[in-house]
Design a protein around this nucleic acid. Structure first.
Lengths: 234, 234
DNA sequence: TGTACATCAGTGAACGCGCGTTCACTGATGTAC
DNA sequence: TGTACATCAGTGAACGCGCGTTCACTGATGTAC
């Protein structure tokens, strides 16, 4: 019983450590995370943190996993509000993609942690990190697959062809018996990711605002163009 | 006379410092640059470097300017080889854009220096840094303007409309008397930048290869799709 | 319910490391007469 | 051409700073009888 209480306190401290790390990261960039800095902020001595994370790298891994999950959650939430508002499929896409950008702009440190330059000394635990990253793509893939099935897409030939190498990877990921629709949806997800990620990265580092002014409108317009190019009936 | 010799040696040392900094950066990431590290590598004492650069920040600024120029040069060279080979305008675009990606992949450290996460302690000298960055865009803008004039484009309405805010910025940059063509070319440059930068960033940090396999082919195909969407007759 | 013992969160000192920058200096190279 | 002086590249020691991690420890909390 009392043991439970101790475990709970333990978990709370772990959360607090991560929260403090994120705050430091937001202020000083992703390599602003340091055992000593967090301890200072929390009014503890540095060695105390080793009761919660065996090393700085493990803490960073935990932050990366959290960030991937938060991003996926944000995208799902973005789409859900469009669904609840009774918006058509096309607007659901827009909402989900806008959520991707919004997350990046609202939590730049977390976004950079997962999609920015790798942290200097950090040696990624890919076996933990990669699965966490997959969720984001899955949200879009499912959404696109549903839209294809619903006849909301009229995909041009240039986007239908999946190269053999890619097809193999997709089949390995989705399973051999994956439907053509699902495979195509994943392919379109990858394309969309590539096409839209750049706007976000450029804006995040301040390269876009000086040349286009209203980045909200710019992104919205190009997002619409992009989905229209993919054959979505908007 | 002898003074000249001294100045020349001085300039050579400066170049050597930058070369050493780039090598360190390539090995340990952009914050691998350090006065002490460079000195160690060059067999000098750290204070000696202060004869060449007043501070670490000034050295980084110099590296950024060099990187922007090298990128612009690479793009121009890429297009030029297509021109020399007698390729059509559409292939000249492809070559120029491929050069952008190639530069990022061949010199990841330099590319991250200009388009990646900002370096922790570094306080950018924007009055030096921003003009240097403009050249890259200008290459594409001129190329697109020439193509429009040559009738190589049949631009869809969605890409023709420039928002008022953006128009003001463009006019401020190009001058009040800039031609409609040039303004549109700059607008399309911005769009293309946003659309293609993401592929490069994702690939650079290893997010793309695991999902598409052959990134060369993937980029080439999407590049082609992109320019076709803009109305380029390919 | 009370007591002896075990667990475990957190401390304080220390390790060895790396960093940018300042300072007074030496010794070679260049300049002026 | 020779000599006195000025310039300037580079040195060595030191400043104050921050870092991750280890270690032996204390003192509170929880557990078992």
């Amino acid at each position: 019983m009392a043991r439970r209480r101790r475990e709970k306190l333990n978990e709370e401290t772990r959360q607090q450590i991560k929260a403090t790390a994120r705050a430091l990261m937001a202020e000083h960039g992703s390599q602003g995370i340091s055992i000593r800095g967090i301890a200072r902020e929390m009014g503890m001595t540095p060695p105390a943190l080793y009761h919660y994370y065996p090393s700085l790298d493990d803490l960073i891994t935990a932050l990366i996993v959290d960030a991937f999950n938060a991003l996926a959650d944000a995208i799902i939430a973005g789409r859900d509000t469009a669904v609840v508002a009774g918006k058509p499929l096309s607007e659901q896409f827009m909402a989900a993609t806008h959520a991707y950008r919004r997350y990046a702009l609202d939590y730049p440190a977390d976004f950079q942690l997962i999609y920015g330059s790798p942290i200097p000394g950090y040696d990624a635990a890919r076996e933990i990190t990669v699965p966490a990253s997959a969720r984001t793509g899955e949200v879009f893939t499912r959404l696109i697959a549903a839209a294809i099935d619903a006849g909301a897409f009229d995909i041009p030939a240039a986007y239908r062809e999946i190269p053999d190498v890619t097809k193999e990877i997709i089949q390995q990921y989705l399973g051999e018996d994956a439907s053509e629709t699902l495979m195509l949806a994943l392919h379109l997800t990858n394309i969309g990711w590539g096409m839209l990620h750049g706007f976000v990265m450029l804006e995040l580092f301040g390269h876009l605002e000086p040349v286009v002014g209203d980045t909200d409108a710019f992104f919205d317009t190009q997002l619409r163009n992009h989905y229209r190019n993919l054959g979505l009936k908007i």
